[in-house]
Lab assay of single mutants.
Amino acid sequence: MQGVVKVNSALNMRSGPGSNYGVIGTLRNNDKVEIIKEVDGAYEIRFNGKVGYASKSYITIVN
């Protein structure tokens, strides 16, 4: 499943599905991501070869 990031500035990509996990990357508006699955209000995603988590509130599914 594919998604597009929709933010005003940037969205943190984290090592786990919550803000208490470390930041492993930054997503920008209109970045395209692969959605692997939904976990606790976040999506597990793949972006630029990395797998991490981002809030589903800022990712629009575009299948």
Rank of each mutant, 00 (worst) to 15 (best):
N8Y: 10
V33I: 06
K37P: 00
T26I: 15
T26W: 09
I36N: 03
E38A: 08
V51F: 08
E34F: 12
G49A: 05
D40L: 11
V51L: 11
R14S: 05
I24W: 02
N12C: 15
D31T: 07
A54E: 01
A10C: 15
V51E: 06
P17H: 05
G16L: 04
I24F: 02
G25W: 08
E44W: 09
E38H: 03
R28H: 13
P17Q: 04
Y58I: 05
I35G: 00
V33L: 04
G52P: 01
S15R: 08
R46I: 13
Y58T: 05
S19W: 12
K32Y: 12
S55G: 10
M13P: 02
I35C: 03
V39T: 08
E44N: 07
V23I: 13
E34C: 14
K56R: 07
Y58A: 11
D31C: 05
G25R: 05
I35M: 02
I35Y: 02
S57T: 12
Y43L: 04
S9Q: 12
K37Q: 11
T60I: 15
V5C: 05
S19F: 12
E34V: 11
A10D: 10
K50Q: 11
G3C: 08
M1S: 09
L27A: 02
V4Y: 07
D40N: 13
N20H: 13
V39S: 05
I61H: 05
E38Q: 07
N12H: 15
K6F: 07
N12L: 15
G41Y: 08
G3V: 03
N30P: 02
K50C: 09
N29H: 09
N29E: 06
L11R: 07
I59E: 00
S55N: 13
A10N: 10
N30S: 06
A54P: 01
K37N: 12
S57K: 15
E34T: 12
M1A: 10
I45L: 07
G52Y: 04
S15G: 08
E44Y: 14
N30I: 02
N48M: 12
V51I: 13
S9D: 12
I61D: 03
K6T: 11
K56G: 04
T26H: 09
E34I: 12
I59N: 00
E44L: 15
R14N: 06
Y21N: 08
D31Y: 05
K6V: 11
N29P: 09
V51M: 09
L11C: 15
Q2P: 09
R28L: 11
V51T: 12
I24K: 02
A10F: 15
K56E: 03
D31M: 05
A54N: 01
V4K: 06
I36R: 04
T26Y: 10
R28G: 06
T60P: 02
I35F: 02
S57L: 14
V7F: 06
S55R: 08
N48E: 12
G49K: 04
I36W: 04
V7M: 04
V51W: 06
V5L: 03
R14C: 11
V39N: 04
L27E: 00
L11F: 06
N20L: 08
V39C: 10
A10W: 15
N30A: 07
Y43D: 00
I36Y: 05
V33Y: 01
N63H: 13
M13F: 11
T26C: 13
V23N: 05
Q2V: 14
G16N: 06
L27V: 03
N63W: 10
G52I: 03
N30T: 04
T60D: 11
V62P: 07
T26G: 03
E34R: 06
V62R: 05
V62C: 13
I61N: 03
E34W: 14
N30R: 08
M1R: 12
N63D: 13
R14V: 07
T60N: 10
I59R: 00
S57C: 15
V5F: 01
V23C: 08
R46S: 10
Y43C: 02
K37D: 10
N48L: 09
N48W: 06
D31S: 06
G22F: 12
S19I: 13
G49S: 06
D31P: 01
V4G: 01
V51N: 06
I45R: 00
R46E: 07
G25D: 12
K32C: 14
I36P: 00
N48A: 10
P17A: 06
N20P: 05
G22S: 14
G22Q: 15
F47N: 02
G25F: 08
T26A: 07
V39D: 04
K37C: 11
S19D: 14
G18T: 10
N29S: 07
K6Q: 10
K37E: 05
V5E: 01
N30Q: 08
V33W: 02
K37Y: 05
N63L: 12
I61Y: 05
N48H: 10
Q2K: 11
K50I: 14
G16E: 05
A42D: 15
A42L: 15
N63C: 14
N20W: 13
S15E: 10
L11M: 10
S15V: 07
Q2F: 15
Y53D: 01
G16Q: 05
V4D: 02
V23G: 03
S15P: 03
I35K: 00
L27P: 01
N48T: 04
G49L: 04
S57P: 07
G41H: 08
N63S: 13
A54D: 00
V51G: 04
R14H: 14
P17D: 03
I59S: 00
Y53F: 12
